[in-house]
């Protein structure tokens, strides 16, 4: 399958096929790169990434570090004169990169906290103290306070195979390796 079709077919079921098809109409004007706040400071070049995708340069796009320098600020998406849904295309390409094993350890770690605690940023003892001082419940009424709810998140992660995607080990409740 051509990489362009793979991107559209991957994002389509969730974000909509019409939405994803906009990838095909990019005319390479470069307004995305011109307005990109990350591009000012880092090596990300949005126009080039879209061109590489259109030229079916699958391995180059999926393995590039630049793919992960987009903060998803949506400036390119807002300004694109052809209404290419750039940010959602970027998120979708990252989904494919993840399946190909390109998720960074730091990202897999953040994801593992959600399976372990329900939160990407879990609570700690210092914040528990601060909460008490402010008159809030020491433990917030989230998965932190409801064990059954945490089980619900863990069941969900198994059902969508999110645990396999990030290489989560249920024995150690940590990342494999």
């Amino acid at each position: 399958m051509e990489f362009v079709d793979e991107i559209i077919e991957t994002g389509g079921p969730i974000l909509g096929s019409e939405h994803m098809e906009t990838l095909r109409v990019c005319m390479q004007c470069g307004k995305c790169t011109g307005g990109c706040p990350s591009g000012r400071l880092t090596a990300i070049r949005t126009r080039k990434m879209i061109l590489s995708a259109l030229l079916n340069m699958r391995d180059e796009v999926l393995s590039s570090d630049e793919l992960w320098l987009c903060t998803t600020c949506y400036t390119c998406y807002e300004r694109c004169p052809r209404n290419v849904k750039v940010t959602d295309i970027t998120r979708t390409i990252r989904n494919i990169a993840g399946r190909e094993g390109y998720l960074a350890k730091s990202h897999r770690m953040a994801a593992s906290y959600v399976i372990k605690t329900g939160h990407g940023v879990p609570i700690n003892d210092a914040v528990k103290e601060s909460r008490k001082k402010l008159g809030l419940s020491e433990i917030p009424p989230t998965t932190h306070a409801y064990k059954d709810a945490l089980k619900g998140i863990q069941t969900l992660a198994k059902k969508t195979k999110f645990d396999e995607l990030i290489d989560f080990d249920w024995e150690t409740m940590n990342l494999k390796e």
Binding site: I14, R91, G98, A111, G120, P141, T142, A149, I153
Partner: peptide, 25 residues
Amino acid sequence: EVPGASCCPAPGVFGSFDLKTWLAI
């Protein structure tokens, strides 16, 4: 309260990992 709520999960991070899991959570 929203009892037992979890991470939203973050749009640019979890949306970048797996859109289906992101939407389900």
